[in-house]
Simulated assay, not measured.
Amino acid sequence: MQLGSRWQVGQPPHPGVPGRLHPAIAAAERRLDDASQQAPTGGSWTLTWLEGRPRVELIDAAGTVRADIGVDATGRVTERVPPAAGGSGADPAAGDATGVRPAADDHDDDDDDDWLS
């Protein structure tokens, strides 16, 4: 059994968060900093486990999901684009309407089961 956890935006990831997610978490926080011209306040990250794979969500003080990062079935780190961050939840740059894209440092696009995440 793997337990989830929660930590505040701007703090180091909880020790239970796999290291492979840390760069994507830092990138998401930088995007929020750049978009608002200040550090995000009142938000928190939540770590959950789905089918044994980690997933972290950043939820701001208003309850809006600002980032959703996980590991797919092939072990690739992906980021789901939340509607608040880009409209419909889809990422046009991903070439489809799933709203799932590889994390910034992972460009392998051989995954055919994004619907699971």
Rank of each mutant, 00 (worst) to 15 (best):
A35L: 13
S88N: 05
V56M: 08
Q37N: 09
R30A: 13
P102V: 01
A85P: 01
M1W: 10
V56Q: 10
R80H: 15
G63C: 08
M1N: 08
A28V: 03
L47D: 09
D91Y: 00
S117Q: 04
Q2W: 04
G4Y: 04
P92Q: 10
T78K: 13
L21G: 11
L47Y: 12
A93Y: 04
A90M: 08
D113S: 10
A97H: 07
T41Q: 13
H14W: 12
A27S: 15
V56E: 03
A67E: 04
E57F: 01
T41F: 01
L3N: 13
P12G: 02
V9P: 07
G10K: 02
A28M: 05
P82K: 12
A93N: 07
I25S: 06
A97E: 09
T74M: 12
D110G: 12
A85R: 14
T64Y: 12
A35W: 02
R31L: 07
G4F: 05
Q38A: 10
S5T: 15
D112M: 08
R31C: 05
D33M: 08
Q37A: 14
V9I: 15
R101K: 13
P23D: 14
D91V: 00
R31V: 08
R101T: 10
T48M: 08
L58H: 09
Q2L: 12
I69G: 06
Q2E: 10
G63S: 07
Q38F: 06
W115M: 01
D72T: 02
A104D: 13
R31S: 07
R53H: 11
P54K: 02
T48E: 15
A93W: 01
D96E: 08
A103L: 06
R55S: 08
D91S: 05
L116V: 01
G63D: 05
D33A: 08
G75C: 12
A104W: 02
V71K: 03
L50I: 10
R101Q: 15
P15D: 10
A84K: 06
W45D: 03
V17T: 12
M1E: 12
T41M: 04
A35H: 00
D114H: 06
V81K: 02
S117M: 10
P23M: 04
P23C: 11
Q37C: 02
L116W: 05
R80P: 00
V100D: 02
W115L: 02
